[in-house]
Design a protein around this nucleic acid. Structure first.
Lengths: 346, 346
DNA sequence: TTGAAAGCGGTACCAG
DNA sequence: CTGGTACCGCTTTCAA
């Protein structure tokens, strides 16, 4: 029951391997009779051309390397599903590396995979990579002719295709929404201030405040470095004690939830006299009480987009296409941690 | 800057390719001088032996195929991380297929990957596969000599290595815990009654009730077929209206949370006069109010175990080892949806 | 209509 | 110590 090869089939019918190869590929060179019997036999024996032989010959593997920091992060899992779906539709396989936010693992795995295991990469940088801007390995890959598509946590200095969310615009919108629903003292809590994504959101916050003629009080900006979400509450609490705030924009689901809890602990009623908006994709937002209003990124679409961009580039290896950055819109999902705003004069 | 091959190196130094190959593999046959210059050059040029050429020659890819139903499911993501970690430690890559609970996709992808892309599979069956017991494709793979390790959603009829949680025992323990903390009318809610895992939990519930001398009231057993968790609450509500219950064991996180909400809506105080235990791994349990007491499976350990079992088998291809099933213990994580029980007479 | 042979990038045996 | 060659499984060109 071992796997059957072209050679086995050739022996069986006492023809050459080239005849078999052509017959299986339905070549016009082979008589219908021969084709028929060979194809029938191949099917019966479940013949499948050997992947490595094909890849060696064609110099392409139809395999994509996906490098993500953390699969337990709902957003990344969503993107991953999107990539897998689109890849599958196009007959591509995916090899995955979870970097665990480690530069070394990200770099080493990519180097190892660039030995002909994959045709291209889809990457979101590890925190370490992004913070130190250690992007040489990306440059190397691209130099070698291995295309990369980056998403979400992209590197400014790398010239490649990119897929990002409109974090800057989204943050502006959150401020606007809060202002429109009566908030003034808007705090900004970030757990990802080191990431470009986090910086964009912060910039959007500042711009939004300016647009709405609100004064930015630096004491209302809190950057959390701690990774353990269990400690978020104690870190956030002083913000409430030392300042007069009526709303929070948080850069992550967990910190948004933590802020809500503290506000409630301090006796605020959400959303009556306190509002919270979180950048979040996960399940917590839909199950918290009250349910959290969020800026939702379309992770799956980002994944599909990234995959499509990579595949397009792979299938047109000869043409030199300019690198593009696609911005995927986010949605402000109004749940119950903010008041409703009926924009009458639209 | 294109990738360099052995042939290129041979040309560069005007030696044969076999000399280069041996030099790179540090063979005793080659003079230190030659080795040194070749190795140095190879390093400088970042030479890496071509993966497909090696796989073709060695008839092994050091690649594992991972087939899971859903990456957005926290448990599967945990297992996946465990597999990736262990695989990586052992120099294995992983190719992933997300079946989306579809038999067709699971089967087709596995067939496609069994063309020499992977050395073995780690699989958790899709619902469809499990419900119809459509396991021919697994048999085929094994017949062909491709080993499989199944985890969690395993197939009874397939003789292969398996990793499962002690669902039966765990369910017994939940009943015991509830009884010990004063509950009597224990309802059982399942969203996965079609899966073997779900059946094991149900059996454990029955056994536990019996062990504790509690009568099983069939009206207290609710099997939810609906997939949309948003509808859980309306489906569960009648259970509370039509029966006198003081606690719930739920087979999933979402259904446990839904049950808690309804209980609270009906005026119960959790855990004072109502208790809930859920089979759950996710984040919701730690963020719900009150925090949910759970039976926690060690997903990551299950993944690592499965990967180790597969790798062991792959590295000992010649030996015929008996198939084993490993049972990974679960933990009852006591949070605040159940009362404390101080087991004094232990 | 069929077959021989080169080549994809390596490894390893055997000869010199 | 170095080189020639067969082979892994398949495609493709060229010759018959």
């Amino acid at each position: 029951m071992k796997k059957i090869t072209i050679k086995d089939i050739a022996a069986k019918f006492d023809v050459s391997i080239s005849t078999v190869s052509k017959a299986l590929n339905d070549s016009y060179e082979i008589s219908d009779k021969t084709k028929a019997k060979i194809q029938k036999y191949a099917k019966k024996k479940k013949y499948k051309p050997n992947f490595n032989a094909l890849s060696l010959k064609n110099r392409r593997t139809k395999t994509i390397g996906v490098v993500i920091p953390d699969m337990l992060n709902f957003f990344f899992a969503q993107v991953f599903q999107g990539v897998e779906k689109k890849a599958n539709e196009n007959g591509y396989k995916i090899i995955t590396c979870i970097s665990n936010e480690s530069y070394a693992k990200e770099m080493e795995t990519m180097e190892m995979l660039s030995n002909g295991s994959i045709d291209g990469f889809i990457v979101s940088m590890s925190k370490e990579t992004g913070m130190n801007n250690s992007v040489e390995h990306f440059k190397d890959m691209i130099q070698e002719g291995t295309p990369i598509v980056m998403f979400d946590r992209v590197a400014k200095d790398i010239d490649c295709d990119k897929v990002v969310a409109d974090d800057f615009e989204a943050a502006i919108k959150t401020v606007k929404h809060l202002k429109n629903t009566g908030c003034k003292n808007i705090a900004f809590i970030s757990t990802i201030s080191d990431l470009i994504v986090g910086k964009e959101r912060y910039k959007g916050y500042l711009k939004g405040m300016q647009d709405e003629n609100l004064v930015v009080n630096e004491n209302l900006v809190l950057n959390i470095q701690e990774n353990d979400y269990k400690k978020y509450e104690e870190i956030i609490e002083p913000l409430f004690d030392n300042n007069d705030i009526d709303s929070v924009i948080a850069s992550s689901e967990q910190s948004a939830i933590a802020a809500m809890k503290i506000a409630q602990g301090k006796g605020y009623k959400i959303p009556e006299n306190f509002s919270v908006i979180g950048f979040a994709n996960g399940l917590l937002s839909r199950h918290s009480s009250p349910k959290l209003t969020t800026v939702s990124q379309h992770g799956e679409i980002m994944g599909e987009t990234a995959a499509q961009m990579l595949i397009d580039r792979l299938e047109k290896k000869d043409e030199v296409l300019p690198m593009v950055t696609k911005v995927i819109q986010t949605d402000l999902v109004e749940r119950n941690s903010t008041k409703r705003y009926l924009e009458l004069n639209k």
